[in-house]
Computed example of a mutant assay.
Amino acid sequence: MNVPTLTLNNGVTMPALGLGVFQSPPEETAAAVAEALAIGYRLIDTAAAYHNEREVGEGIRRAGVGRDQVFIETKVWVSDYGYDETLHAFDKATSKLGVEQLDLLILHQPATDRFEKTIAAYQGLETLLRDGKVRAIGVSNFMPHHLAELLDGTQVVPAVNQVELHPYFTQPAVQAANAEHGVLTQAWSPIGGITFYPGWGEDRRSVMQDPTLRQIAGEHAKTAAQVMLRWHLQQGRSAIPKSTNPRRIAENFDVFGFTLTDDELARIDALDTGVRSGPDPDVPRPDRFAMVIPEA
């Protein structure tokens, strides 16, 4: 099965569906990545702050899939923001991953209380792009006003904005701003409710148990998770579901053999509650800068 691709605003193509490794224990990550690649995934999303880039690289090598066949995406953490710091963050990431070039490098969050460092970090990404060290650059968790401020101080429009997005939190204003500027929306927590973001809303109900999703899933002989992933793909988004369970990794990939109707897509859209599962990007969190990303 060839995964459908999305064309980024600089002409680079990216698989629409990938494997995310947020909260994947390092000791389980390599096996999960190798399993995903064996099944047919060709996009792997990681981050410096996940502390499993080395294991992602090991999983890619273990799978025996050619480097040119795997789209590797990772993120710069806020404690490495700044121009020179971001250039060095690239060196740290590629060393751990065991590659020379990244397909997509993005800023993990807007540092709202130190946005000048965010601008400088993105200017570092622009240099890496110009030098051919990365094929595309982007951002994560940027709200429309963050994106507007970034565009005012930089030259290259981000190719991707990775944000929390699932049926209970669809962020229509973010999606609209991304579309206006030609930025692809990529969903983290795309099946919201499998892995709750630590510290935010552990008492909330899981999207997986939603009656509407379960009804639509039953009509297609699919799971609620598969319906949610299909919803993302049909609406033109990239999705990066996370799992280390081989059965779920395979299940999350089995979303290309059915189509949701316009009515079903609208019913899923209507589930939006406007309530986040993760942290608000507008709330300053100085503690984030205390995390030191190790050299190796």
Rank of each mutant, 00 (worst) to 15 (best):
Y83A: 07
W200V: 15
P172F: 08
V78A: 11
G193E: 00
A266L: 03
A121F: 02
F71Y: 10
A89G: 05
F289A: 15
K242G: 09
D262Y: 14
R288V: 13
L150N: 00
G182E: 02
I44R: 03
V275A: 14
V65S: 02
T154R: 06
F142K: 01
T118K: 03
Q186A: 12
P144Q: 05
V183C: 03
T185M: 04
G218I: 11
H108F: 00
M208N: 12
G66E: 10
P286C: 07
R61S: 10
L105Y: 10
H145N: 10
V183I: 07
L147P: 02
A217Q: 04
P110S: 05
Y81I: 01
I119V: 13
L107V: 03
A270Q: 09
A179R: 10
Q209C: 13
A47D: 02
H166L: 08
A250G: 06
N161T: 01
W231G: 09
N252Y: 04
G193L: 05
R237T: 08
P198S: 06
V21R: 00
I106A: 03
T195A: 14
A217V: 07
D203K: 14
F90A: 11
G132S: 07
N161G: 05
Q109L: 15
R205C: 11
S238Q: 06
L6G: 11
D131V: 11
K92I: 09
P167I: 03
D280I: 09
R204Y: 13
H51W: 12
N9F: 01
R62M: 14
V283I: 13
T195M: 13
E251Q: 12
M1R: 15
H146R: 05
R204W: 08
L125G: 11
L260C: 10
L147T: 08
A136M: 07
R204C: 08
E295V: 12
T7A: 10
W231H: 08
E295Q: 12
K133T: 01
M143F: 14
Q171M: 03
R67E: 05
T154H: 07
Q101T: 15
G201M: 14
K75R: 00
D45L: 01
I216P: 05
A224R: 04
G236F: 01
R205Q: 13
Y50T: 05
A177R: 14
V163Y: 00
V78E: 02
H146T: 04
V65T: 06
W188H: 07
T261A: 11
G124W: 01
V227D: 00
